[in-house]
Simulated assay, not measured.
Amino acid sequence: MKHRTTAGLAAFALGSALVLTGCGDGDSSDSADASASPSASESGASAAPVVAGGVCEPEAAPEPSEAPEASEADQNAVDAVEVTGESGKKPEKVEFETPLAVEGLAVNVLDEGDGAELVEGDKITFHDYIVNGADGEQTNPSTWDEGQAPQTFTLGDPSYQVLNEPLTGLHVGARLTIAMQGMDGTTQVHVLDVMESETLPQRAEGAAVEPEEGLPAVELDGDGVPTVTIADGYEDPTELVVQPLIEGDGAEVTKEDEVTVQYLGCLLDGTSFDSSWSRSAPTSFPLNGVIPAWTDGLAGQKVGSQVLLVAPAAEAYGEDASAHELGGKTLVFVVDILAAEPAA
């Protein structure tokens, strides 16, 4: 599945699998609107029925895509970029000889930072200032600009291999310059400032809740990874089912929050179509930018909780099978809410 990703973070993404907004064409950009989930009234097409019954578990993650290696010329180019201004504040100037063009991913660490060390599994918050390699001009909004906000991702998420190796082992307060080809093939020069890191739990923790009878059954392994068993002949619900399985003791989630979660998504026949567990990293997104089942089903739950959602098509991607690959289908999710904070 694909979720909304701002232009800055999208530049670093290498094929994230999320599609919670209903944008299934593989494009992670601001063009994905928060209301992108298709409406049941858009078309009369319906999906082929799915026969209920099966066991769903996260599939093994594919090997992550590797960032293209920098040549000596690429590295020399990024080493020559001069950034004026204090780390942790918007750069005053970013200067280099133009045009600057690279074929690989070239990184220069200007300041290693003196805060907490960045380790795999941390939620990293950073600012990104981007200029065009051709002329040195700012062509994309900076996260420092008015109306913008710093970006977050989980260190180690294979969808962001471009950032994993450069940031691992640095510290909060680090500043880097990164030269790379953008999605349009032109060279971009990024100035990254690491503002915060947060160590998050990797699974829901709290008091077990006895589920209603007849729902898909959830079992957890020793690491908290879920397996969902859906009974033969399980009947599609006509309304969204929200069943807490673990009740955490954290803050109550609101629709205006950005949440960080682990999750497994299943069809009624037991097919797994997406899972953060497969990527070995939680994911974060604004709760008002996803399918209705998630917005309505997670709002009001507490951080630390695990929630079973059974979403009829109208609460997921609509009843029009032609509008989305998951259109017309009832979906089952097991969601661990690891953190929540007001979305920027």
Rank of each mutant, 00 (worst) to 15 (best):
M1V: 13
M1Y: 04
A11H: 03
A13D: 13
V19W: 03
C23I: 04
S29I: 01
D33E: 13
S35G: 15
P38S: 11
S39I: 07
S43P: 03
A45K: 11
S46V: 11
P49M: 06
G54E: 01
P62A: 14
P68C: 03
E72P: 07
E72K: 11
D74H: 02
Q75W: 01
A80V: 09
V81M: 02
E82A: 12
G88C: 02
P91M: 09
E92P: 06
T98P: 00
T98L: 00
A101Y: 00
N108C: 02
G113S: 10
D114L: 10
D114T: 14
D114A: 14
G115E: 07
E117T: 15
L118G: 15
F126Q: 11
H127E: 13
I130A: 12
V131A: 06
T139E: 04
S142P: 00
D145I: 06
E146C: 06
A149L: 00
G156T: 14
S159C: 07
S159L: 05
Y160E: 08
G169N: 10
L170G: 09
L176D: 02
V194Q: 03
S197C: 10
R203V: 10
E205L: 03
E205A: 09
G206A: 09
G214S: 09
L215G: 05
L215F: 00
P216N: 04
A217K: 14
D223H: 09
D223I: 02
P226D: 11
Y234Q: 12
T238Y: 00
I246E: 01
G248W: 01
G250Q: 08
T254C: 05
K255Y: 01
E256A: 15
V259Y: 01
Y263L: 12
L267S: 14
L268E: 02
F273T: 10
S278H: 04
P282L: 11
P286H: 08
I291A: 14
A299W: 01
G300M: 05
V307N: 03
L308A: 10
P312F: 06
P312S: 15
A313M: 04
E315D: 14
E315H: 13
Y317T: 05
A321P: 02
L326E: 03
G327P: 01
K329I: 06
K329M: 12
F333Y: 13
V334S: 00
V335S: 08
V335H: 02
A343Q: 04
